[in-house]
Amino acid sequence: MNFDRPGRGGLVLGVPREAFRPSPIFLTLVALFVASGVMAWNRYGNVRFDVFLFVVSGWLVSLCLHEYAHALVAFRAGDREVAHRGYLTLNPLKYSNVLLSIIFPVVIVLLGGIGLPGGAVWVDRHAIPGRLRHTLVSLAGPATNVIFAVALVIPLVLASDYDAHWEFWAGLALLAFLQLTASVLNLLPVPGLDGGNMIQPWLSPQWRRGYDLMAPYGFLLLFALLWNPRIGGWFFDVVFTVGDFLGLPAPLYGDGLQLIRFWQG
């Protein structure tokens, strides 16, 4: 990457360096994630609330990284406007739809224990040449969830005993499970979601027109699919199978879901 330094303020490919600095909001989320993890480990105060903070802050961090990955790959592929919009600062308030990207997914986590994908980063597709680059931009987000899931599962697999710090391990297992559900959901070929956007550039013009008509209703289509008992069952079968393959302890993430609902007593 080339650097241009006109005066005191540096530029990265024509964009001020400030556009790449992590925002205080994101750094606060990371600090909360680490601090609440330590509190859950040591059973400080109300341990159920500790686990709640641990899981929710960790999930918010992963959402920021998911959208950041989209923006970073788009920037490297040719869309410089993602930097000017603040997407590369990891600030969730800069997203084009905070409700769908942050608030709604957190509510779904608390109610149903599913890592729902959100639509946040607006990418100028006209600024990005080549179908492969478009696919990579869409793939970057789910790939981040996959990496996050594997990174969270590793300490769970290496741990020999969960009893001493059971609440912490349950929260970590739930967070890993959420990453698995987000990975699978984001890779589904649903119009408007990452999985659908990955294949959209490769469609024929006729199919692409139909895709573009359906894309705004991708979330509704996703809910309709998951509401169907058979399709929903297939979805969770895939998630459970992947979790078992990675070594994610099934009882633990169920315990974690109960723990984060601290208001239930």
Rank of each mutant, 00 (worst) to 15 (best):
D4R: 10
V12D: 00
G14D: 06
E18D: 09
P22H: 12
S23F: 01
S23E: 01
P24Q: 04
P24Y: 09
F26T: 05
S36A: 15
A40P: 12
W41M: 12
Y44I: 15
Y44R: 09
N46Q: 14
N46W: 12
V51I: 12
V51W: 07
S57M: 07
V61T: 03
S62W: 13
C64E: 06
E67N: 09
E67T: 03
H70T: 06
A71G: 11
A74C: 05
R76T: 14
R85H: 15
G86L: 12
T89H: 08
N91G: 04
P92N: 04
L93G: 08
Y95E: 09
F104P: 03
F104N: 07
V106L: 11
V106I: 14
V109K: 00
V109T: 06
L110Y: 14
L111K: 15
G115M: 06
L116R: 05
W122M: 15
A127E: 14
G130R: 01
R133A: 11
H134V: 01
T135H: 05
S138K: 06
L139D: 09
G141V: 10
A151Q: 05
L158T: 14
W166P: 03
W169K: 08
A170H: 07
A173N: 09
L174N: 02
L178R: 01
S183I: 00
V184T: 04
V190L: 11
G195Q: 12
N197W: 03
L203T: 07
P205D: 07
G210P: 04
D212W: 14
V239G: 10
L248N: 10
L248P: 05
P251V: 05
Q258S: 14
L259E: 11
W263E: 13
G265L: 11
